[in-house]
Design a protein around this nucleic acid. Structure first.
Lengths: 357, 357
DNA sequence: GTGAAAGCGCTAACAT
DNA sequence: ATGTTAGCGCTTTCAC
């Protein structure tokens, strides 16, 4: 057995001789005494090869260290077995878990993923990503972009390349997979209402985020349906620090007894503000988050939140995309994944108002 | 201007006719009345093309909706402008931020990323990933794997494909980029010692993680250098919940006044346990984390922690790899990125022992 | 069950 | 500045 170093040196030598190219099918064919065609058949696991011939080819392959050249194969077949993923904000946990779901599902189907991260969710950057991806060897595209602006632009992507969109309000002509934002926000708001709180304050996400807007709408509708007063929305930017700033304001108001934050990070910031203001959670104020990031069970107090099946959304998106690719058909419409409420220790029945005590 | 739907329908038609293939260089050449070679020159931005000819070609390209076929180009040049990234645990924030750094640096250099996520950091799975990647159109590989086992295996990757390793103890024959784990752990431990704590307890990461082992070693050495007692290590699994369980134990011991957790999530769990046990932080116990995840400034209390430049590590790794690819040379050795301490509110001078009061 | 021929779309090398 | 030729490694088609 060779050490890594020896192998590497060997590699270097090979490289110098073969100019960085491995053995081709022809080489294997020559070594096995068959035609390149037969090698191709073996390589693709076709049945119509004599088992004895197959063995010879396989050992020739092994001996020479043959690997199929995907570029040549792709050139010939027009299929790349590769999916492009366009993604804004690689640092958000939700996106990451979605990406994980996509990557796992892809590798299960023998596809690989080409990642294209976009700094800002604006159409211009998106167009650039489409263009670059259009030149890549991809069979389809998944877009994870928390914004309104999804448009293929003028001629960015070649027609015929299927696209699946996650987390956007892309029109009905697109294939969309997403969590049920409205249902999730309803769950959170109704939970607080059921606990006897007269109303629920909302820490919203950025206006550019469609998930945030949809959650806010659902929060509002739930409040209205219950005949509760709809307080003004406090807008954050997803960061825990923005939640903290908003929490400071909210906590200073003794009327506030229930807060629904649009993600767990902002809920964390709210909790911090409440602690600083000596407002007990949940005795004096109840807080609900959104996402159920893995840390939220260890917040102080452990956070009641809405659980999103991020990985499941990713998996689903990839599978729909693969279906479109393999049937060369377009399947427009939305696939919606339900959310569920995870009840922990940050929510409790509404405190009895001082005037009634 | 066409709507998305119209464009898509148009695409469908094209597809039916051209069997999912776009226009080729030859088509553009014919349309522009030049040779395919000239189209190639324009496509690659070569200088030696008459500007008038170039214009004609460009407009023919635009009109036909031409896009270069990367598979054909790769087949010809033997270069793919694509980097494979093998990664275990897509859900860790650190890995995500590193991936972000890689993806950003790659796209700046006109490379794309092929993601290969590996469920478990064991050699067998790694070998599988190498094999699949070996068949992919990649020019190099970055491995982010928090473990000891990095070995190309037998013949998994074609020789000549450069590899850069992040976060591992890969031998000196490999090119390694990593944060300075030892320095970071020293910073944390020394900070606590300087605050007057007689010793520092450690919540360690899993034994399989080399980063965890290196941090622990450095913590131990720092303690020994200061002549402090080295308490037994409490081992966690990176999760906040494991930090909570360990924290419950630690907090029950009144001698414990300083805790250094091997990541921020476990520190979060420790904080929760301390709150439950009514041990004031930092008045009674000081806590330091590791990583500086974006939420840690909103923990209660805001966490003192060691900041890792994850994205920088990713960027660096990619640039070293690109250098190896473009010079077809191997640059073994370690590139180490320093860490720094971010001081917030979870640490304070050691409480005066009851016996001295 | 196996082989020979042709060509996918592109670019390097060599004309002109 | 532009065109011609050849061939990258593979698979499809059609022979045998």
């Amino acid at each position: 057995m060779l050490t890594g170093r020896q192998r590497r040196l060997e590699g270097k030598l090979d490289m110098a001789i073969t100019a960085r190219r491995g053995p081709s099918m022809t080489d294997v064919a020559a070594a096995a005494g068959v035609s390149a065609q037969t090698v191709s058949r073996v390589s693709n696991g076709k049945k119509n090869v004599d088992s004895e011939t197959r063995d010879r080819v396989v050992s020739a392959m092994r001996e020479l260290g043959y690997r199929p050249n995907s570029a040549a194969r792709a050139l010939k077949t027009g299929q790349f077995r590769n999916i492009g993923v366009i993604m804004f904000d690689l640092s958000s946990i939700g996106n990451m878990r979605t990406l994980d779901g996509i990557a796992t599902a892809a590798s299960e189907s023998g596809y690989s993923i080409t990642l294209m991260s976009v700094a800002h969710p604006i159409q211009r950057e998106l167009d650039g990503a489409f263009t670059r991806l259009g030149e890549q060897a991809i069979d389809g595209v998944v877009i994870i972009i928390e914004a309104a602006l999804v448009d293929r632009g003028e001629v960015e992507l070649p027609p015929g390349v299927p696209v699946v969109v996650i987390d956007s309000d892309a029109g009905p002509e697109y294939t969309v997979v997403d969590s049920d934002q409205a249902q999730g926000a309803h769950l959170a708001t109704q939970h607080l209402l059921d606990l006897g709180h007269s109303t629920v304050w909302h820490v919203g996400g950025p206006r550019a985020s469609f998930a945030a807007v949809r959650r806010e709408k659902s929060w509002r509708e739930t409040l209205e349906a219950a005949g509760a007063v709809v307080p003004p929305v406090m807008v954050g930017d997803w960061s825990s620090d923005s939640g903290y700033r908003v929490g400071l304001e909210l906590g200073a108001n003794p009327d506030v007894t229930a807060i629904f934050a649009c993600n767990d990070q902002m809920a964390l910031g709210v909790l911090r503000a409440l602690h600083e203001l000596d407002r007990a959670v949940p005795a004096s104020v109840s807080v609900v988050g959104f996402d159920d990031m893995s840390e939220s069970e260890s917040f102080w107090p452990p956070l009641t939140t809405v659980h999103q099946a991020f990985a499941e959304v990713g998996r689903l998106a990839l599978n729909v995309l693969l279906q479109e690719i393999e049937t060369t058909s377009h399947i427009p419409g939305r696939t919606i994944v339900p959310m569920r409420l995870t009840t922990r220790s940050s929510t409790a029945p509404a405190p009895v108002p001082a005037t009634l005590r």
